[in-house]
Design a protein around this nucleic acid. Structure first.
Length: 466
RNA sequence: GGCGACAUCGCCAAGUGGUAAGGCCGCAGCCUGCAAAGCUGCUAUCCCCAGUUCGAAUCUGGGUGUCGCCUCCA
């Protein structure tokens, strides 16, 4: 397995702390709103990583957190009058449901910030004791970046502050402009706060990940986890700060490898909540089946920007259709073993920093070769069994092709319409038998007008939703 | 102002020094009553300029363009 390390900026062989075991932690969502396509892409990127590692026989431990205490959630509490837990539980459940619909495997560990306050408190206290963190008069606790000689090693982005006209307004109470809050003191009556030895308040954003990683993973003398992942926007400052806290608190690096996924753009612009151009997963799911969305969102390499548009989505769907047509063609059959050459090529592609394009190309090749062979010999049982095994392997590795093929082409068609279509097909076949082609074509036109395509095969007439 | 990414056929997209994968679309053919599906064939020299090299889409330098991070953000 090779992965691109976005800190070292190069592709490296994956050599975990413990051979054949992989510990992964990915920054999850802040649960104050529904998941958008950007969350989906991040989730899907690391889902492919997990699936690939598993296919390579790694024992994977995957952790993804929920940030369930933060300014925006508190704002939502104040706006809606609902309590914090109601809000966060709702969005956590919605998130999990959305990701499930996209075929994302459930993480082994899903820690919430509010369940890890003790771990955060003790990490912050440790940093205060070491004089790396300091408490100011307001009660805020800051991390002193000047105490960490490696600060900047993650994002390569510190430099001289004189050259850095950051758009951030610096708090006067900070010792250095780059210092960041580990703990934010309570503001007013309706704020949501927790008691600690240093002040009443709540955690800063970065500390939760460091604390939760320490709490849930056991690393070695050098690292806490093998791979730390997240969106490219988290590289700075979030991951820089996480790394600094962890380094100073534990005496070793947080992660051996860092992976960052690219953005989802809408009309060439980053999709984000602040730009107001978010496309929510649950809305997309109303229009498209989860597998079709998944197929589209994973079709571009995870590090590239992804420009979302409906036309491309429909194009990528045609590729998935071909897989299911083949699956339809070999049904019914049992699975034997996947073709070794095929399995090797697709797995090798994914082992190369998740090269999905090459993986998909090898699927295309397998499909057309198999169709070709079936054209020559429709009844090749051995081939059918092998092909089903191939498709099952694809499903395991990429999460595609797992559905019953006939129902795949009938998603969104109700039973009444289904019966209607089938009776029209019967009428058409009778007309065909009588060589009344004018009538049979008229019936086909009628069916086409319903958004259904027909295919006459030796096994009878099949239909698909267009 | 600082830091960074990207630019390959009409569209999507691989490729990290050895002579341009794949998909969609289009065209031609096989198959078909006709279609559809499937199969076969055809379609690019890689943003521009200069350099390194026997050889560059791939390396170096300089442009141009697009996007991102530096504030919450996947």
């Amino acid at each position: 397995m090779y992965i691109y390390d976005s800190v070292k900026k190069t592709k490296l062989p994956f050599e975990p702390m413990v051979p054949q075991k992989a510990s992964i932690y990915v920054c999850g969502p802040t649960v104050y709103d529904d998941a958008h396509l950007g969350h989906a892409r991040s989730s899907l990127s690391f889902d492919l990583l997990v699936r690939t590692l598993k296919a390579l026989r790694y024992e994977v431990t995957m952790g993804k957190n929920f940030t369930d205490i933060d300014d925006k959630i508190i704002k939502k509490v104040q706006e809606t009058g609902q309590n914090l837990e109601e809000i966060t539980t709702h969005y956590i459940n919605q998130y999990l449901e959305d990701m499930k619909a996209l075929g994302v495997l459930k993480s082994d560990i899903e820690p919430k910030a509010t369940e890890s306050l003790e771990a955060m408190e003790s990490m912050i206290q440790g940093l205060i004791d070491k004089d790396i963190a300091y408490v100011v008069s307001s009660g805020d606790v800051y991390f002193d970046t000047s105490k960490d000689s490696n600060y900047g090693a993650i994002s390569h982005q510190v430099g001289d502050d004189k050259d850095n006209q950051s758009r951030v307004e610096h708090t006067s109470q900070k010792r250095n402009p780059k210092d960041f809050a580990l703990w934010k003191a309570c503001h007013g009556e309706d704020d949501i706060c927790f008691n600690t030895a240093f002040s009443k308040g709540r955690p800063g954003w970065h500390i939760e990940c460091s604390a939760m990683i320490e709490k849930h993973f056991k690393g070695n003398d050098e690292y806490s986890i093998d791979i730390h992942g997240g969106g490219a926007d988290l590289l700075f400052p979030h991951h820089e700060n996480e790394a600094a806290q962890s380094r100073c608190a534990t005496g070793h690096e947080l992660a051996k490898y860092w992976m960052h996924n690219g953005f989802v753009n809408i009309n060439g612009e980053k999709m984000s909540k602040s730009l107001g151009n978010s496309f929510f997963v649950k809305d997309a799911l109303k229009v498209y089946d989860g597998e079709i969305l998944r197929n589209y969102l994973i079709s571009v390499h995870y590090r590239n920007d992804f420009n979302f548009n409906e036309e491309d989505l429909l194009n990528s769907k045609k590729r998935l259709d071909k897989l299911y047509r083949l699956k339809k063609r070999i049904a019914p059959t049992g699975a034997s073993k996947p073709n070794k050459v095929f399995q090797k090529s697709i797995l090798e592609a994914m082992s190369d920093d998740l090269n999905i394009s090459v993986a998909l190309a090898s699927i295309d090749e397998m499909i057309s070769e198999t169709n070709d062979k079936l054209n020559a010999n429709q009844k090749d049982k051995g081939l059918k069994k092998e092909t089903l095994a191939n498709i099952e392997f694809i499903n395991e590795l990429l999460g595609l092709g797992g559905k019953e093929p006939f129902s795949y082409f009938q998603i969104g068609i109700d039973t009444v319409t289904k019966t209607q279509i089938e009776s029209l097909i019967e009428q058409r076949n009778e007309a065909k038998k009588a060589k009344d082609y004018e009538k049979s074509d008229a019936i086909r036109d009628k069916i086409t007008a319903m958004g259904i395509a027909l295919m006459d095969t030796t096994d009878g007439t099949l239909w698909e939703k267009i």
